[in-house]
Write a protein that binds this DNA or RNA. Sequence first.
DNA 1: CTGAAAGCGCTTACAG
DNA 2: CTGAAAGCGCTTACAG
Lengths: 363, 363
Amino acid sequence: MAGDPGGPPPSRGASRDRPASVSIRDVARAAGVSYQTVSRVINDSPSVKASTRQLVLDAIAGLGFRPNRAARALAGGPVQAVTVLTSNTRLYGPAAALEGIEEATRAAGFALGVRVVESGTPADVKDAVERAVDPAGALIVIAYDRAGLATLNAVPPDVPMAGIVETPPDPAQAPRTWVWIDDRTAAMDATNYLLSLGHQTVHYVSIPTWMETSPRAAGWRAALERAGVRVPKPVEGGWEPRSGYRAGLQLARDPDVTAVLCGNDELAIGVMRAMAEAGRAVPEDVSIVGFDDTPQAAFYTPPLTTVRQDFNALGRLCFAKLISLLGQGRQDQEPPWPQAELVVRQSAGPPPERRRRYPPRRP
Amino acid sequence: MAGDPGGPPPSRGASRDRPASVSIRDVARAAGVSYQTVSRVINDSPSVKASTRQLVLDAIAGLGFRPNRAARALAGGPVQAVTVLTSNTRLYGPAAALEGIEEATRAAGFALGVRVVESGTPADVKDAVERAVDPAGALIVIAYDRAGLATLNAVPPDVPMAGIVETPPDPAQAPRTWVWIDDRTAAMDATNYLLSLGHQTVHYVSIPTWMETSPRAAGWRAALERAGVRVPKPVEGGWEPRSGYRAGLQLARDPDVTAVLCGNDELAIGVMRAMAEAGRAVPEDVSIVGFDDTPQAAFYTPPLTTVRQDFNALGRLCFAKLISLLGQGRQDQEPPWPQAELVVRQSAGPPPERRRRYPPRRP
DNA sequence: CTGAAAGCGCTTACAG
DNA sequence: CTGAAAGCGCTTACAG
């Protein structure tokens, strides 16, 4: 019995005619109840008799009913959609965070939207926020750069939102929900590690300069100061390998440079390439340490010593916090905060002058 | 005049009370027209007097009105949302395609949803499709693996959809809209390039084995056969560096291996690492060529010779095709198909026995 | 060119 | 525990 054998086929042309989907009224009819009862069942209302619920559930399964998201949203149902606002979806940090958010939203039955903020200009930010704000949805803003931060500040206070940030903004000015990875200690560890290898000091290639006050830069600086060692001027990097390459070319010209900490792994690979072209061997002549531990880092030649940051876990945490904010989850169900951690591999070793006394780590 | 000074503040608690947003009725009142006229203006109906339109536009700007997506969708407005179904968001291919789709949807004013298909099992595929299919939205499926392909086949025929595929399925069986990059010729070029360097044959590390019939594998095989050269058994790789590393370890054991074509750049970096550990220099002892040209590829040491594929452009093209399918765009406005192209860098050179006659490309 | 009507599929109070 | 009512913000015919 596949319906009326006459009549036109259920055409779905180029435009407005939508396939007639099954509604709660259809389910109600099939189950012999009112459609309000169907609504209660699909919303897990406790006030439905078990036998009635089963009747409805059977009808839902039999008819292949799926609630219409638009209708639920319009009628004022609970928030079940999140839009991620980010200036980039492909760099490791935002991409991994997005992946974690996707996993968490999927598990929670939330829809996931994505919108890229083209730039930090007021017009772009305003446009992105206006388009992403939906009375039926919540927001996650990934704010690792200027555009992201501007976006964060442009979200109206009444919109439920959680932010993924490099370092928490002044809580007094904006009582919002944030998550971040505190990599200050790990940056100190990385710097101390290089110092312990015998380097006179450690140079730093930064992610975009306005972030010089980031925990990782702060940790680097603190470690040098604590060691009573010269603090070189940070070299301006960026996010991509090309920026690292340029910075590396500059650093390679200075024979005093024997150890470089990079703001991320993309930068590190660019620096390594520049060193190779300058005839400076890694780690024999100069040691390189990265930040993030991308999936490729362990397979660089030499394998990259770096600071692991679990952005996927950070994304999942962020969504959990948003759920709590929405009143749909409990704080004690939130996953633990991810910790940054130094991963020692082979791109760092003793400086050249100490190699005479200590044999290199690998032949 | 900021509204009623008494009354409770516009609280937005944890649950259902939404901020009272401005509706077309508010706009209508402000403009002194009926709300249907407002609807016509926001839908670019030609049958509105210019002066009336301006009145409405002014009111919209003044009130900061934004149409409610859920309501538009529910009332049967045009499709203005796309959901991308993919088994992965972080590998280079899907991530770059997603980036291109995002750019295109943003330009077109479409909302973008993302849903990951956990696996190719019928249950996962069914769940993903059911959740993503929305009467008010269209679908893009990224089908570079089993899970993606299974998803493609599970989408009901009446749902508007376009697919990003490795190679087009039999058009007779499914008259759908597909886009792909034909990399067969580029794979032949890459193989011929290695052969021209003097290698006896070229080994191949595959992306997951069921894709052995992919254009890139076919191009590799065809080039070898055309050259009348031995066709070695492909080594099973995967998508990630680790798989390439394993394959590389195996290949490194065979002294006859002097040239390796890899199914993607992630694989290539793994192979290069394995060669380094085995004491086989690249490109002096063994030449490596990748596929994709990821942003890092140019900065590997040595810089990777690879086949460039513009997945971002492919994503934009896919959305353009979807728009045409929806009757909202014209075919002659679609961007050109991206072409795969061999990018020669430094990871490939003559085989060892020829180095005596030809000097290496770099000292 | 513009207005009044009906309805999209749901949810939340409100009654029983 | 379950049903009848009202309405979310829009759009599409249908009238003028």
